[in-house]
């Protein structure tokens, strides 16, 4: 049917943009189309992509989470405090820092579903609280010095290969999320809530529970992102993750997720994240000012959203 083509157009358009970018940059910059650079790009995308993965779930429900960047900083600092400053085992640090991130997400979810706060406002508050806590706990200091075994997560390669562990982690997470969103009740319900919250509720879906879950996952993914980031840089900084939420949201939107909810895919978001990183990477390689990078990324977001709104308009006709 003609309609089916329209539905998939969004995902395809981001893929087309990606391919066009790769061809263009490959022609313009010899260093771009190399295996090493490809690995670099995937390595640089892990942080944004894992973060976007969580935010995407929230966006599917028609919500938004702008607290994730700050939560990355907070859970990183918690990790540093526990492992480096308090000298407790790595395992304890990882579990507690993930719990802190999860808690931030649960808190967002409860505020939004039970107390009916607008997602933007609730997560804005969380953004400020988490950032403030991170700065306070850290006392403004960077915390470094982690065990080698942990740094492996952000710096090591899968043994015997040149494939970084963080890339494997990222791809594994994407496969798991793809499975959940496509083959699990959770995924169906999340899309349903984003598509029509009232109809979902009247169909017997516990909307509040699933919304809280969505925000919790977003928080948890911020925690995972934080682990990768700390391991990559061997340091946790209270100013880490500044404005990362914007990159994450942009990834989702470029990848075809609608901020109205109910639309988009896990793989679309992956492509969106790669597009953002590729633009930065390519312009870096060509030695073009990063101020211009911002402009270009803004432009791509705009085009993606325009495509989204055209699709919606067609749908209404």
């Amino acid at each position: 049917m003609a309609t089916k083509k329209k539905i998939n157009f969004g995902d395809k358009s981001s893929l087309i943009v990606l391919i066009a970018l790769i061809i263009l940059l490959g022609l313009l910059e010899p260093a771009f189309a190399t295996v090493n650079n490809a690995i670099n790009i995937l390595q640089q995308v892990t942080v944004v992509a894992i973060l976007a993965l969580g935010v995407n779930i929230v966006i599917f429900t028609g919500g938004i989470d702008i607290s994730v960047g700050a939560v990355v900083a907070l859970s990183g600092i918690v990790l540093g405090k526990i492992v480096v400053d308090a000298g407790l085992p790595m395992f304890v640090g990882i579990v507690l820092s993930l719990l802190v991130a999860l808690f931030c997400g649960v808190f967002n979810g409860v505020m939004i579903s039970k107390f009916k706060l607008q997602p933007m406002i609730a997560t804005l508050a969380m953004q400020s609280m988490a950032r403030g806590l991170a700065l306070t706990i850290a006392g403004g200091k960077t915390i470094s010095g982690y065990p080698e075994s942990f740094l492996y997560l952000g710096q090591g390669n899968v043994f015997g290969t040149k494939i970084p562990v963080q890339i494997v982690l990222m791809i594994a997470l994407f496969i798991i999320f793809h499975f959940i969103m496509r083959y699990r009740k959770f995924g169906r319900y999340i899309y349903a809530i984003g598509g029509n919250e009232e109809a979902s509720r009247l169909s017997g879906i516990n909307v509040d529970r699933y919304k809280i879950l969505a925000y919790s996952i977003s928080g948890l993914m911020a925690g995972v992102t934080s682990l990768v980031l700390v391991a990559k840089l061997n340091s946790a900084q209270p100013v880490a993750g500044l404005e990362y939420e914007m990159d994450a949201i942009a990834s989702c939107v470029i990848g075809g997720s609608s901020l109205l909810g109910g639309q988009g895919s896990v793989w679309g978001t992956f492509i969106g994240a790669i597009i953002i990183v590729i633009i930065r990477n390519g312009l870096n390689l060509m030695g073009i000012s990063s101020n211009l990078q911002k402009f270009v990324i803004g432009l791509v977001i705009l085009l993606a959203v325009l495509a989204d709104s055209f699709r919606n308009r067609k749908k209404l006709q």
Binding site: E29, A31, T34, N36, N37, N40, Q43, Q44, V47, T142, L229, K232, L233, S235, Q237, V239, A240, L242, R280, N281, N284, L285, M286, G287, S290
Partner: peptide, 15 residues
């Protein structure tokens, strides 16, 4: 920013 320093350096060195 540290992470940005990392990414930019990585990119510069590949080129």
């Amino acid at each position: 920013d540290r992470n940005e320093g990392y990414n930019v350096t990585q990119n510069i060195l590949s080129a």
